[in-house]
Structures are given as structure tokens and as C-alpha cells.
Design a protein around this nucleic acid. Structure first.
Lengths: 195, 195
DNA sequence: GTCTATAGAAAGATAGAC
DNA sequence: GTCTATCTTTCTATAGAC
């Protein structure tokens, strides 16, 4: 083929990020070369450096964008004020949002270790922000007597681990719809923490 | 230092595996070089090839050993016959066993993608065996009317994801003992699935 | 903005001395 | 059983033509 020409590219940047996301999620950050990413996009390796200063920054940008989007989407999510309603909204939101972005979810949990200390801290802080959203719901519900989880912090981590696990097995067009999966998990979460 | 000599080694094999386990878990399989492993052990890179034919086999052996050990330990675990007692035994066993091997647990969930198809299938089959142990408990309990989880297969995956998550945050000497963690998770699991 | 070409470092794996 | 040395490949990143 030998693609030769073109300055068709305000879209090359996004395409590079999309290709990197897919390949990093599939094979792991360290196992993917800049040449593979370039080949997936259809450019030469050198061209990538017009869009990112180096490989780690490319990873960092993907993770940062994912976390920013997650927090913004949750803040925009309609929900009630009672702890039980807020918890149900969180459970259904987390499953739905993550099922739309399985590659980014996978990266966010697996490839933090490939970041330098400063970049690592930045992503960790955002992840912590998100956990705090759920923890606040559980704390409010515990005070109100709605919930009876024996440990609010651990319940937070347990629920997030359980919900995030959905992305590892869910297949579009399988025996369960997303809504049905949401129903099942909400049933388990509700019973696990309610008084 | 420049270590020079020695044929002091029926123990070099295990030391190589221990070093590889630690480094793979910390940095990821693809990010760790054979030279790094050799340096951790205190030998030269070439010496590693007396103990493994290649890097992937080294990873495979670690994963295989971990899964074999997990299944053997569960089969040896004392437990009752009633579904509720078996479920409690499983929850406490899983937490305790995995907290003793955080590096191996991490590898088992993160580095399967670095195996070739045959090796991948072998590890997947063992992981499936283990999941089936829990699924059988939940199925028996559903038939007996002890459990009321809306979907046995999903409850299996949800519980394992929740329990395995412990290894990502638990720190020895933190505010909670292992037994206390086991109590808290057992409380949540029991309420999530019981009728 | 993308290409070709390459510098410079590091990787996996092997050969042969001791 | 381990070492030194090296083959061969591949990598990240850069330089300069177009």
C-alpha cells in the first residue's frame, strides 16, 4: 500500500488516541510499540510525535481523559436525595458507563504502574474522588439508618470492585441485557448494605 | 561486587521464579527484562536459560503453579456440607489464601494476555474450575432455598470480583486484621445472596 | 503533516570458556 | 552452573526531505 500523502488531519490526533487505547488494553502498555500504534492508524512512527511528546504521556492522557469523563458524567447524572435512591443511581450509572468504555476501564485498573510518580498521583487522586462519591452515599445512609454495612470504607471498595468486574465478562448480545445486569447487581448491592 | 563463582544451586531455580513473580507483579510482564530478573537473583542473564526455555514459559509456570496451589488448597479446606457453611468457608478461604499471595493474584488477573493461545487456554480452564467451585455452592443453596440470588452465574462472578479486590488495598498492619476483613466480607456476601 | 532514514539503547536468546 | 561476549532484532525518539 505505502500510504504516501495527506495533510488530512485534525482527526489524526483522536485516531492515534483511539488506536493506543485499543492496543494498550489488548496487549498491555509495555508490550505495544509506537510502530504498532502508527500502523493501526496508518501513519509512520515518527508522525506520532507530532501529537504526543512521548509514549508515557500518551497513556497518561488516555487515563486522565477517562477519569475526567467518568467524574463529569456522574456529576451530571440525575439522582434523588435519599441515600437509597442515590445508591441505586450510582450502581446503575457505574455499570452503564463502564460497559460503554471497557478498554478505558481496563487501562485504568491495570496500567497505572507504567506512569511516573507525578502522573500516577494525578490519576490516583481522581480515582479517589470517584470512590469518595460512593463512600459519601454509604456514610449518609448509615447515619440515616438506611444502611447497615459493617464498614463504610470497605463496603465502598467491595461494591466498586464488584461492579467494575462486569466489564471483564459482559458480552454485547449475550444472554443478559445491560438493564437486566443492572437489576441483578442492584439487587445484590441493596441487600448487602441495607439495614 | 561482581559475583563470580558458585555451583550453589538447587535453589537458583526457585529464586528466579520468586524474582520474576515480584518484578512481573510490580512492573508488568512486558516491562521486565530478563536482565532485570537476573540482576535481582544475582546471576547473569544467560544463566536464566538453564531454568526456563523462554520468558513466556517463565510466566506460564508462575501462573500454573498459582492456580494449582489455589485449587489444591481449596480442596483441602475443611468445610461443612450445608450451602451456607460452604459459602462461608469459601469466602474466608479466598480472602486468606489470596492475601498470602498478592503478587501471584495480581499476575493471574493481569498477565494472561501475554500467554500464547495454548498456555492461555490452560490457565483459563483452571480459573474456570475455581469459579465452578463457588457456582456449585450457590446452585445447591438456591435449590435448597437457602439462597435467593437472582442469577447464580452472575453472583459467582460478582462475589469473586469483590473478594479478589481485597488484595488491591489490604495492607499488613493496617487498621483491620485479616479475620476482621473476613468477617466484614462474609457479612456482605451472606446478606447479598441469602433468601 | 507525513514521509524516509537512522541514531542510540536495549531487548531475547545463544555460544563457548571455565 | 555461571560467566563473558555477542548475534539479531526491536525499540523510542529525532532529523531532515517533501
Amino acid at each position: 500500500m505505502a500510504r504516501k500523502m495527506g495533510s488530512h488531519s485534525e482527526i489524526t490526533g483522536p485516531r492515534i488516541r483511539a488506536a493506543a487505547l485499543k492496543l494498550f488494553a489488548r496487549h498491555g502498555f509495555a508490550a505495544v510499540s509506537m510502530r504498532q500504534i502508527a500502523a493501526e492508524v496508518g501513519v509512520q512512527a515518527g508522525a506520532l510525535y507530532l501529537y504526543t511528546p512521548d509514549k508515557e504521556t500518551l497513556l497518561f492522557d488516555l487515563l486522565k481523559e477517562h477519569m475526567d469523563e467518568l467524574l463529569a458524567a456522574w456529576r451530571a447524572e440525575p439522582r434523588g436525595t435519599a441515600p437509597l435512591a442515590r445508591l441505586e443511581a450510582f450502581v446503575r450509572f457505574h455499570i452503564r458507563h463502564n460497559l460503554d468504555r471497557p478498554d478505558a476501564v481496563f487501562l485504568s485498573y491495570m496500567e497505572l504502574r507504567n506512569l511516573g510518580p507525578a502522573n500516577f498521583a494525578a490519576i490516583e487522586a481522581l480515582r479517589r474522588d470517584y470512590e469518595d462519591q460512593l463512600e459519601a452515599i454509604l456514610r449518609d445512609g448509615a447515619i440515616a439508618g438506611t444502611f447497615a454495612a459493617p464498614d463504610t470504607k470497605i463496603a465502598t471498595l467491595a461494591i466498586i470492585a464488584m461492579l467494575t468486574g462486569v466489564t471483564t465478562w459482559y458480552r454485547e448480545g449475550g444472554r443478559l441485557s445491560r438493564d437486566r445486569v443492572g437489576d441483578i447487581y442492584w439487587d445484590m448491592v441493596r441487600r448487602a448494605v441495607c439495614a
